[in-house]
């Protein structure tokens, strides 16, 4: 092995830039939010108030709504996006004419900025004049105020979330499906296993590590979704689509309460870390890995 003393300085310098920026823009912010969460601002004075902000959070009914909304957003986007993605991947996982076209068609939203996607969908969702409402009225339905109706606003931002990510997840699933050895499926077929059995006993276990990866990314992302909330609904109507990051933003930059916003930040980051921990300690041990994969 290498002479260690000679390399000590080198290793330090190699790691320094990454960890410097990691510390100052990821870890230190978390710490400073933590400290700010015990303070309150009166005029120009910032004073220590103990757990007051946390107490407020516990009884803040808007926060409860926001948390519930975010939970709903996750429950709606994550499974649906994954199911559609897997379905599309299964459809494309065969020799089929035009598969390159289909792949492009499904994948392209990945390169569209969420800001642009929000504008496009806002236009599609337009009351009365939007193309979706024109179709609905054409078929005899009643025009819907998509982003303006508390009943439909959440569905609207969910649709945009699914549209943006389904192609990307589809492509990851497809890569995993194509890595399954053909011989495995063939021998199962020869042993008389039907398509359902083959899917359940071979395909599903073989893509479970991929599914785990997508699941964790999708859940983590869903708790940090904000672009389409800001651009399409501003959290409204009446907080119906207010999600965690947007509520943090509101408290800091609309209500100018940085201390309460910091408290919410601490809550969200801690929640994300707990979700990650849960996934790796509880879910991952049940994930099937092929030998050789780590």
């Amino acid at each position: 092995m290498r002479k260690r003393s000679k390399n000590r300085l080198r290793i330090f310098l190699y790691l320094l830039p990454t960890f410097f920026f990691l510390f100052f823009f990821t870890y230190f912010p978390y710490l400073s939010s933590f400290i700010d969460s015990f303070a309150e601002r009166r005029g120009n004075l910032i004073s220590f108030v103990g757990l007051k902000n946390y107490e407020r959070m516990a009884f803040d009914s808007v926060f409860h709504t926001v948390l519930w909304n975010n939970f709903l957003y996750s429950i709606l986007t994550v499974p649906l996006t994954m199911l559609f993605a897997l379905g599309l991947a299964l459809l494309l996982n065969r020799k089929i004419a035009g598969s390159a076209f289909y792949r492009t068609a499904f994948f392209y939203p990945t390169v569209i900025p969420m800001a642009a996607a929000s504008m496009i969908w806002l236009y599609l969702f337009l009351p009365t004049y939007g193309i979706i409402n024109r179709f609905i009225t054409l078929w005899g339905g009643k025009s819907v105020e998509w982003v303006g109706d508390p009943q439909y606003a959440m569905i609207s931002i969910v649709i945009v979330g699914i549209w943006k990510y389904v192609g990307y997840y589809m492509m990851i699933f497809l890569t995993a499906l194509q890595a399954i050895p053909k011989s495995l499926l063939e021998s199962a077929y020869l042993d008389g296993a039907g398509p359902v059995r083959r899917f359940g006993s071979i395909v599903l276990p073989m893509i479970s590590s991929t599914s785990f990866f997508i699941l964790i990314i999708a859940v983590i992302n869903s708790f940090q979704a904000v672009d389409q909330v800001y651009l399409m609904t501003r959290g409204g109507p009446g907080n119906a689509t207010n999600l965690m990051v947007y509520y943090i933003y509101q408290n800091a930059f609309s209500f100018w309460n940085f201390q309460y916003a910091s408290t919410l930040t601490v809550f969200l980051v801690t929640l994300l870390l707990l979700i990650t921990l849960f996934f790796f300690k509880v879910v991952e041990p049940r994930v099937y890995y092929e030998s050789g994969e780590t």
């Binding site: 990691l22 912010p29 400073s32 930040t265």
Partner: peptide, 23 residues
């Protein structure tokens, strides 16, 4: 250190807007 680094994948910049804005 590697684990600490990978944790960054879980926290998007929009989540830390408040403290990072102050910085």
């Amino acid at each position: 250190l590697f684990t600490l680094l990978l944790l960054q994948l879980m926290i998007a910049p929009q989540t830390l807007v408040v403290p990072n804005y102050i910085i």
